[in-house]
Design a protein around this nucleic acid. Structure first.
Length: 182
DNA sequence: GAGAAGATCTCCT
DNA sequence: GGAGATCTTCTCA
């Protein structure tokens, strides 16, 4: 799963809507495990909400939190094994104007440098929970053509109170997107 | 059935 | 820098 999280960095997340396409490069992710990770939704076992985390790899796990925010995860373990990668920040490559219409932000960076921000900018909702990010044409992940390996830095995860010792947050170095970055 | 907490964001001071 | 917003889900009685 850690490997998958690192591989997701630099990949393109493509959102296809009736109004146009939004292409974004993934620049920051966090890995969440299962029963061995007390910060994970899957820690206490399978629930109606988190059942995607136990499902097939490559599927989207979208959950609603704080009464107003959606967070986008990618299932990253084999079927039956809990484990997902939270997409924390993306860099909008294409469709900036469209994303800006969904969210008011001062800059392209502020448009998508947080889990709740990027889902709003890309119009990702609970309706996308459980979709296949490989086969679905509405929302999918693809490799960039120039897939040169970027410098990846690891750090502790943000916004959680337990399992802080795990360095499971990964971001591309030299990216200005890191909110609390070092 | 009721209460509390939460992988966050934005506004106000 | 700090606190409020807002609603889904889980836990406990």
């Amino acid at each position: 799963m850690i490997t998958v999280a690192k591989e997701l960095l630099g990949k393109y997340l493509v959102r296809v809507t009736a109004e146009g396409n939004i292409v974004a490069r993934i620049v920051e992710v966090e890995a969440y495990g299962g029963s061995d990770d007390s910060a994970s939704h899957a820690y206490k076992g399978i629930r109606e909400r988190n059942r995607v985390m136990f499902g097939e790899p490559g599927h989207a796990y979208v959950y609603f939190t704080y009464g107003m925010h959606f967070c986008l995860n990618v299932k990253a373990e084999h079927t039956g094994i809990p484990g997902a990668v939270l997409i924390r920040a993306v860099e909008i490559i294409d469709g900036l104007e469209l994303a800006g219409r969904n969210r008011s932000a001062k800059s392209s960076i502020e448009l998508s440098n947080g889990p709740g921000k990027l889902t709003k900018a890309m119009n990702i909702t609970k309706a996308h929970n459980g979709i296949d990010l490989v086969k679905t044409t509405q929302l999918y992940i693809c490799k960039p053509e120039d897939s040169e390996r970027s410098e990846i830095s690891a750090s502790t995860r943000i916004g959680i109170k337990t399992a802080k010792e795990k360095l499971w947050r990964f971001c591309i170095s030299n990216e200005p997107y890191q909110k609390n970055g070092h």
